[in-house]
């Protein structure tokens, strides 16, 4: 079969891109361990408090080591539960220093919700019966809005919070 010189060039370009992108996916999945945020770990959605991470006293921000934090949260229509502060008022802002590693752990009590810290890579689907986790390094200073990005009902737009990196 005769192929034009140019055809050979773009076919090589196309096939090489395909191979490179497949290798990138393989590298991310098998070497870096990238996986869906809610994977394997399940929970009883009607009794999330039974799980250690979602006991009312364990909700919200906790420093686990120097520069390492974890945030446990429960999403429900139409609120994110980040625990309560000293005055027993619901927490709406999570404050962490710049450069810290934060493990966000969240589950849903009712329907599918979203958890996105807009402007960062933190973006998860929150499914009832599953635990979603995402660990992120907060590289940039600023205020980032937490939004629900899965339509969850009439009060969907009222589900929000804030992450402040100082």
């Amino acid at each position: 079969m005769h192929l034009h010189k140019y055809e050979k060039v773009w076919l090589t370009f196309g096939m090489a891109s395909l191979v490179i992108f497949l290798l990138v996916i393989g590298f991310a999945a098998f070497w870096k361990g990238t996986h869906p945020q809610s994977h394997l770990e399940t929970i009883d959605q009607n009794n999330v408090e039974a799980h250690d991470s979602f006991k009312p006293e364990n909700l919200g921000l906790t420093e686990v080591a120097d520069g390492k934090y974890k945030v446990n949260m429960v999403a429900s229509a139409f609120n994110y539960d980040f625990g309560v502060d000293k005055d027993e008022k619901p927490v709406k802002t999570i404050r962490v220093p710049q450069g810290s590693t934060v493990l966000f752990t969240i589950t849903s009590k009712d329907v599918v919700h979203g958890f996105q810290v807009a402007g960062t890579n933190v973006n998860m689907m929150v499914e009832p019966g599953h635990i979603s986790r995402y660990e992120a390094v907060m590289k940039n200073k600023g205020e980032f809005t937490i939004v629900c990005n899965e339509y969850c009902g009439i009060g969907h737009h009222q589900m929000f919070g804030k992450v402040e990196v100082y």
Partner: peptide
């Protein structure tokens, strides 16, 4: 041996 220069340029731009 027809002229494929234009096609080649477009394919490369897309790529």
């Amino acid at each position: 041996s027809s002229d494929l220069k234009g096609t080649f340029i477009m394919v490369m731009i897309l790529g």
